[in-house]
């Protein structure tokens, strides 16, 4: 029962091979095997959204996915959205709008918003609120979070315009 399985996947653009027990969630594999601790583990049963990562372009709760199910998949974590020296557009907007306090839920909100705006850069406030309803924030409140995501849209619209050319 404690056998390990080799899983081959792409994480933040780089090929990775990890060896995990079948019961390992994608969250734990990212955090413990790949030391990508930006992905947070909150409720561990699919309610809080803190563990959201992007698999093949779609936002998913990584605590509700086995690492072995990510075989061959393209996984993006919050680490792919920028770093301290080069914040991405969502991160810049979150800083400007004070869209975080304790920061625990923030990685999941950033990855969720990134997936949303990559696909729907013109998402309106209602759509953003609907999508963010899957991420629990218990200290900041959603007003600055929504404002930050609204502001970041222009950067994603630009990306889409470039891609279309």
């Amino acid at each position: 029962m404690t056998r390990t399985v080799a899983v081959h996947l792409t994480v933040n653009g780089a090929a990775a091979t990890i060896s995990v027990e079948p019961r390992t969630t994608l969250t734990d594999a990212l955090r413990n095997e790949l030391r990508l601790t930006g992905t947070h583990l909150g409720c561990e049963h699919g309610v809080c959204g803190a563990c959201t990562v992007i698999v093949d372009g779609a936002a998913v709760r990584s605590c509700l996915m086995l690492a072995v199910q990510a075989e061959g998949r393209d996984v993006r974590t919050v680490e792919s959205l920028g770093d301290a020296a080069h914040l991405g557009p969502l991160q810049l907007a979150f800083r400007k709008h004070h869209a975080l306090q304790c920061g625990f839920c923030t990685p999941g909100i950033l990855t969720t918003a990134h997936a949303l705006l990559s696909e729907e850069p013109d998402a309106d406030e209602d759509r953003i609120r609907d999508v963010i309803s899957g991420n629990l924030c218990r200290c900041t409140g959603y007003i600055p979070i929504v404002a930050a995501i609204m502001e970041a849209r222009s950067a994603y619209l630009g990306v889409q315009a470039e891609a279309a050319q």
Binding site: G46, G49, T52, A58, A59, V60, R61, L64, M65, T112, L116, D130, V131, S133, G134
Partner: peptide, 9 residues
């Protein structure tokens, strides 16, 4: 049904 992230899977 559920939330954005769950709806994807």
């Amino acid at each position: 049904v559920a939330h954005y992230q769950i709806r994807n899977r």
